[in-house]
Amino acid sequence: MNIQNIKIRSAILGQIRAFFQANEYLEVETPILAQELIPESTIEIFETTFSSEFHGERQFYLIPSPEVFMKKLIAKGSGNIYQITKSFRNSEQIGKDHNPEFTMLEWYTMDVNYLDSIKTTEDLFLSLCNKDTPSWFKPPFIKMSINEIFKEYISVDLLKCQTRILIKIEAEKLDLEIENTDTWEDIFNRIFLNFIEPKLPKNRPVILYNYPKQILCLAKELKGTPWRERWELYVNGIELANCYSEETDSEKVKNTLDTEYIKKISTSRVIPDIDSNYNLIFNSDFPECSGVALGIDRLVMLLTGSSSIEGVILFPFSDTLIRDCHSTSSETE
């Protein structure tokens, strides 16, 4: 624990709030306990039990992001909103970039798309810069499409790899062993993590945009293409933010939620309840909008020059594991 870094963190949070207030975003505070979640097959969640003498017992879940509530606020006419909140993800590695409990900044801007949100994010970064800020943090961001970077780094044209068989062939050329159970998305992710992500530029922030539509999420499909209106931001090689043009078609939202829920049944330890009527908030009054989720702990780690998020959060989970390990060791001596 580094108290000086915690002071810097506090100042950064103040700067973030000042930026959004100056740009007329409404700050909101939604629950971290939810009775229903948006199912995401790649994310494991924490489950807990509400127990009451008068209401019996019910299962609740710690949110992996505030999205489920923030979109309900948008449907109510909130306009531009932002939130800094605790979020939780289970069954992930613990270390330099990960803590099961983490702080997320999430904001939604009305009547814009994912490309417009790049400018907002650049402006946010500029508001956090001072004379000592390293150049690799400063805008303008480098912007490359996923297909451009695949072609440049490994000479793979994703336009020609739209089936599992074709992307499997490219993966095997790279000496990756592919299992029969691996999906198109699994193969893509293995290629990306092994051959793309480690080579990303570190001299400036990098936006990777237009992700393959095979990677199911609540981002709009880019018309006439095999891509989704989505980008991710990397700073100094670290994944920092994720952005969509949010899907607003009720039927497409329902299909995505149903598909992800079925996947979770077969792959996840905890299967959250879902709101079967959630898609109905996406009616004709729901505005076109873009949402960005950004990891605060990683942001502060980068701005303080820390080697791990453990240096910029109070009482990291790893401390608990080390203490428990020492306790167990003492008991067995």
Rank of each mutant, 00 (worst) to 15 (best):
L158R: 06
L158K: 00
L158C: 08
L159N: 12
C161D: 03
C161R: 05
C161S: 12
C161A: 06
C161N: 06
C161L: 06
R164W: 04
I165F: 14
I169S: 08
E170P: 11
E172Q: 15
E172M: 12
K173S: 02
K173P: 03
D175N: 15
D175Y: 14
L176C: 14
I178D: 12
I178H: 03
N180T: 10
T181N: 14
T181H: 08
D182P: 05
T183K: 03
E185P: 00
E185R: 10
F188M: 00
F188V: 07
N189F: 05
R190V: 06
R190K: 15
R190Y: 05
I191S: 12
I191F: 06
N194L: 07
I196H: 04
I196V: 01
I196S: 03
K199F: 04
L200W: 01
K202F: 09
K202Q: 12
K202D: 07
N203A: 09
P205L: 03
L208I: 13
Y209W: 02
N210T: 03
I215T: 00
L216K: 14
C217D: 14
C217E: 09
L218F: 09
A219T: 14
K220Q: 11
L222E: 14
G224S: 06
G224W: 03
T225Y: 10
P226T: 00
W227K: 07
W227N: 05
R228P: 01
E229T: 03
R230Q: 11
R230V: 04
W231D: 00
L233N: 04
L233H: 02
V235S: 01
G237Y: 02
E239M: 05
L240T: 00
A241I: 04
A241E: 01
N242L: 04
C243G: 01
C243L: 10
C243T: 07
Y244S: 05
S245A: 09
E247N: 06
E247S: 04
T248S: 15
T248V: 10
T248D: 04
D249N: 14
D249W: 00
D249Q: 01
S250L: 14
S250C: 12
S250A: 14
K252D: 12
K252H: 07
K254D: 11
N255G: 03
D258V: 12
D258L: 10
T259R: 02
T259A: 15
T259Q: 13
E260C: 02
Y261R: 02
I262D: 13
I262E: 14
K263C: 05
